[in-house]
Design a protein around this nucleic acid. Structure first.
Lengths: 243, 243
DNA sequence: GAGTGGTCTAGACCACAGA
DNA sequence: CTGTGGTCTAGACCACTCT
């Protein structure tokens, strides 16, 4: 059977269509980069009109869940380097140009038990294991960002000291582990750099640095990454656009 | 004559409707808080179908230009304290609660010639005059944000040392001067507090503070406010949501 | 009850990509 | 040429607000 009408659930039809599409992305029926059925095909399958599917697709497009190309079709969003740069990297130079980090030297990758903070942030059971990555990103030849990244070990089996950590971590999570980062919340503070961090950034101990605390989650709201970035903002600034 | 069909311009019809609506807001035909004509009325006037007006309204709603209420009508967005709080104030406490500053003590209001930086930021002629405001905002009883605000004097005639500067500056600009802030761009850096600023924030000189450099503009892109905020982020953080 | 926006449908034509 | 998304139309019914 190809016809799978919507369950009898209430609320607006297009919201049900939206949930249905998200459900199929979450359960792996459709993966990042895949082409979705056309509006007419999906409308026929779900027993709604084409305009209703369009309204659902419109909202999903606005939420960066899908991408549409006239004449080509509708696709599940994937983490290209471009998207990672424009959506998840906010440091710009004096000319407001986003600089893709040229190098990211990994200082350490460890597999260990989660701390209390980590279990709370990531919603893990106490005693769960995590992968902890520390790496230093360089902008324009200067060490600029020290990142401490924590991932639930259960989500990334096999990721360990032997694996290469690519510059685009979110792309790796997506292609190799089927984990797609969808949204993130960041908390920014100005702090004095502790000696260990200052050393990596080649700053005097106690220098002012920008601390970015990011919690990233998948489309179904599961937190999957806790990342704290310590940034030297002498030559770059965090860009935030308010609309 | 009530019928004012769209000019023959090219491009999608709904984009033309959108431009037409924005034009009428910019030229003062419709002011913040005003009710717009209904979909059917505007469609009739412009010679398009209701669905086309709806699509234009949908985009304007997404861009916070208008607000729609079922059964009541469509209204030009106005700067309520709520909007100012949720869209333009990003400091939250440890529980992620936005704290409306309880008090904002104005230290100084000056009318003077613009500096070179100021003419560049605000797109003013060299020698233009500006209003410079310095005020200290308090969060939970603690001095937390020192703001230095610069406005082109030409835009706010009469605003001077004798005027009371309200907590909600954008609301004042809108109601008293017809200037509506629509969007803003912020650049964030961590810096060491100079003695003068540290004193106001009751911090040791050289303490790490978050410096927020905001340039705010109207709906037609005219920059109208340059504001630098110096924040004590020991008890609050700047919240940024990435979608 | 009258008027508003919110949803849903059905159908048409256009612009674009790819075989 | 076919199929896709993008635009536009016309009409229907519902949910909500106000009088």
């Amino acid at each position: 059977m190809n016809a799978t009408p919507l369950p009898p659930g209430g609320g607006p039809l297009y919201k049900q269509v939206k949930s249905d599409v998200i459900g199929r992305i979450v359960d792996g029926t459709w993966n990042p980069g895949d082409r979705l059925p056309s509006e007419t095909a999906l409308a026929r399958e779900l027993g709604v009109s084409q305009g209703t599917v369009r309204k659902a697709f419109d909202e999903l497009t606005a939420e960066n869940v899908i991408l549409r190309h006239q004449g080509r079709g509708t696709f599940v969003s994937a983490h290209t380097p471009q998207r990672e740069l424009f959506h998840f990297f906010h440091l710009v130079d004096a000319d407001d140009q986003r600089q893709l980090p040229t190098t990211a030297r990994v200082n350490d990758v460890a597999r260990r038990g989660a701390s209390r903070d980590e279990t709370e942030h990531l919603g893990l059971a106490s005693g769960a294991r995590v992968i902890a990555i520390e790496r230093l990103r360089t902008l324009k030849g200067r060490p600029a960002i020290l990142e401490k990244i924590v991932l639930p070990a259960a989500l990334v089996p096999g990721l360990g000291t032997d694996t290469r950590i690519p510059n685009e971590l979110y792309q790796l999570l997506e292609t190799d582990y089927g984990v797609t980062i969808h949204r993130a919340v960041e908390h920014l503070k100005a702090t004095a750099a502790p000696p260990a961090i200052a050393k990596h950034l080649r700053l005097p101990s106690g220098a002012s640095i920008l601390e970015i605390d990011r919690l990233a989650e998948t489309i179904d709201g599961t937190p999957v990454e806790w990342r704290v970035s310590y940034c030297d903002t002498r030559f770059h600034a965090y860009l935030s656009e308010i609309v």
